[in-house]
Every structure is written in C-alpha cells, then in structure tokens.
C-alpha cells in the first residue's frame, strides 16, 4: 500500500496531518502499538521539518508486509552540514518557530532514535530527501 501527502512550508496548522493518517492506517492493519509509536514520533518530526524549513514537500509511505518505508522529499534550502544537524541541541530554526516550542535541536535525533534506519540526502539550495524505515517486528 502506498500513500502520498503534500506538505506546504509554513503551514503549521496542518503539521501532523500525514502522521495522524498513517497512524490510523497502521492501527487498522494491526501493527504492534510500540512500532506505531516510534513511526509516529519520527514521521511527525520529519513532517514538522518540512513545514519549518522547506517550501514544500511530498511524503510517500510504502506499507509492506515487513515494515514501513517513508520518503520525505522536499524543495527547500537543504542542509549544509548533516552531521552537525544530527547533533542534539543544534538548530537553525527561526525565532517564530522556536516560540512555538520547536527548533530545540531535537527533531533529527528523535528521528534517529525512533527508526531502524534513517538516511538523509541533501543538496544546498535544492532540497532534502529523508528516507526512514521501521520494521514491524
């Protein structure tokens, strides 16, 4: 099963929509609740990253028998230094985004902690592609 969602940069009112839809579907097909919790944490952070940093993006989720692969492909500024971005506490978020309680430099570490694999490719000035995978067992 493949699902696709569009995410617009700056649209905080809708941030979390894709996460909530995917959570619902994983629940319906009987995926282990602990796995769902991890997927939801990682996906929500990734979704908020598109809203907070990029112009727009597409989330594609492939639900297979053994796990879920989610690709988040955005058009945006890209990440110049990925190892630095992975550090807990490092953030480039705007003051407005920080005021909402985001931008504490926890998003990418949360994503890493809650996925079985996380891959980030980024081209500065073009965009970022995040691929994450969670096994169902």
């Amino acid at each position: 099963m493949t699902l696709q969602f569009n995410v617009e940069g700056g649209d905080f009112a809708r941030a979390g929509y894709a996460s909530s839809q995917i959570k619902k579907i994983l629940k319906e097909i009987g995926v282990d609740p602990d796995v769902i919790k991890h997927v939801v944490v990682a996906l929500y952070e990734a979704e908020v990253n598109i809203v907070a940093h990029a112009y727009h993006g597409v989330i594609t989720a492939d639900i297979e028998k053994e796990g879920i692969r989610i690709v988040l492909d955005d058009a945006g500024p890209g990440i110049p230094d990925i190892p630095r971005a992975m550090e807990r506490g490092y953030s480039t978020a705007s003051p407005e985004v920080r005021e909402m309680g985001f931008g504490a430099g926890m998003g990418l570490p949360n994503m890493k902690d809650n996925t079985d694999s996380l891959d980030i490719e980024s081209v500065v000035g073009k965009g970022t592609k995040v691929t994450m995978y969670n096994k169902f067992e």
């Binding site: 944490v41 929500y44 908020v48 309680g101 809650n114």
Partner: peptide, 8 residues
C-alpha cells in the same frame, strides 16, 4: 514547553 521533547 518543547514540543519535540514531548513528542520524543
């Protein structure tokens, strides 16, 4: 008050 903290 940090939403990523709550999330995580």
């Amino acid at each position: 008050d940090l939403l990523s903290d709550v999330m995580g």
